[in-house]
Nucleic acid binder design. Structure first.
Length: 234
DNA sequence: AAGCGATTCAACCGCTCGCCT
DNA sequence: AAGGCGAGCGGTTGAATCGCT
C-alpha cells in the first residue's frame, strides 16, 4: 500500500516528473512488465506499484497513441459502449494505442455529453411521460441502454433528421471499414462492424447481454446473444 | 489584463478477481 | 477451503488550462 503520508507531503498533485518517467521506462525495458510491487523498491522510485503500473500502461508504453481521437475511433467507442457499458478496458482493447483511462476520459468529457444532449433533446420534444421515464432510467443505468433509438416515439423533427444523418454516416463508415478488410472472423481485433445481418458474439468471455441489444441499434444487423464474440457473416 | 467559472485529463482510491500457498 | 497478495478495473478527484466577461 502506498504511503499516504508521502502523498500528503507533496505540495501539488503527485504528477510524474520526466526523470521519474526515464527511470521507470529504463527499469521496465530491462526487467519487463509485471511485479509492480517490486518495481518501486528496485527502481528507487518513490512510487507505489499501482502508480508505476498506471504510468507505464497509460503513458510510457511504446505503443501508446497520443493525440485527438479520430471520428472512426469515436464512433467505435460509442458503439462498443452501447454494447458493453462502462467496460473501459474492454473498449480500449479494441482501439489500438488507446488506454482505458483515455477512453473513459474521452467518453466522460466528449461523447457522454454529446449523447446526453441528444437524449435531452428527445425528452424535450416528447410529451409522452412513459417514454421520458424510460429515457431517464436509461441515463441512470450502468448497464447497456435498453432503448434503441427507434423504440422512443420521437416527435421532434431535428431528432429524426439527426438520426437519419447518423445512420447514413454510420453506414458509410461501416462500409468503408468493411472495404478495408476481407476477413470478418476478427474477434473485434479489427474495429469493423459488418454492414448488415452479421451476428456478433463473444469468443472468450460471457457477457450479460440481452436480446434487445441488437446490431440494429448499432446501425446494423441482429445480435445473437448466445454467440461468441466474433463477426459471423451470413 | 485580471478574474472567474467551465472543462480537461493525469493520477489516485477502493474494490474485485484470480492465483498461490 | 480459506486467507493473503498482486494485478487490474471503474469511479472520482483536483490541478492545470481554457475561454469568456
Amino acid at each position: 500500500m502506498e504511503s499516504k503520508e508521502l502523498v500528503k507531503l507533496q505540495p501539488k498533485k503527485n504528477l510524474w516528473k520526466p526523470e521519474e518517467d526515464l527511470v521507470l521506462k529504463a527499469y521496465i525495458e530491462t526487467h519487463g512488465e509485471g511485479k509492480w510491487a517490486t518495481v518501486s523498491k528496485n527502481s528507487g522510485l518513490k512510487r507505489g506499484g499501482k502508480s508505476c503500473r498506471l504510468r507505464w500502461k497509460n503513458y510510457l508504453r511504446p505503443d501508446i497513441k497520443r493525440g485527438d481521437m479520430s471520428q472512426e475511433e469515436e464512433d467505435l467507442i460509442i458503439r462498443l459502449h452501447k454494447l458493453l457499458g462502462n467496460r473501459w478496458s474492454l473498449i480500449a482493447g479494441r482501439l489500438p494505442g488507446r488506454t482505458d483511462n483515455e477512453v473513459k476520459n474521452h467518453w466522460n468529457t466528449h461523447l457522454n455529453k454529446r449523447s446526453h444532449r441528444g437524449k435531452k433533446r428527445i425528452i424535450d420534444s416528447n410529451n409522452d411521460k412513459e417514454s421520458n421515464k424510460k429515457i431517464r432510467a436509461c441515463n441512470n443505468s450502468e448497464e447497456t441502454c435498453r432503448l434503441s433509438s427507434t423504440s422512443i416515439a420521437e416527435t421532434g423533427l431535428d431528432v429524426m433528421e439527426k438520426e437519419k444523418e447518423e445512420k447514413e454516416e454510420s453506414s458509410s463508415m461501416t462500409n468503408s471499414w468493411m472495404d478495408e478488410t476481407q476477413s470478418f472472423d476478427c474477434d473485434l481485433d479489427c474495429p469493423i462492424l459488418p454492414a448488415n445481418s452479421a451476428v456478433l458474439g463473444f469468443e472468450d468471455e460471457t457477457f450479460n447481454l440481452e436480446p434487445f441489444i441488437s446490431l440494429e441499434a448499432l446501425g446494423c444487423g441482429t445480435m445473437d446473444c448466445d454467440s461468441h464474440l466474433r463477426w459471423i457473416m451470413p
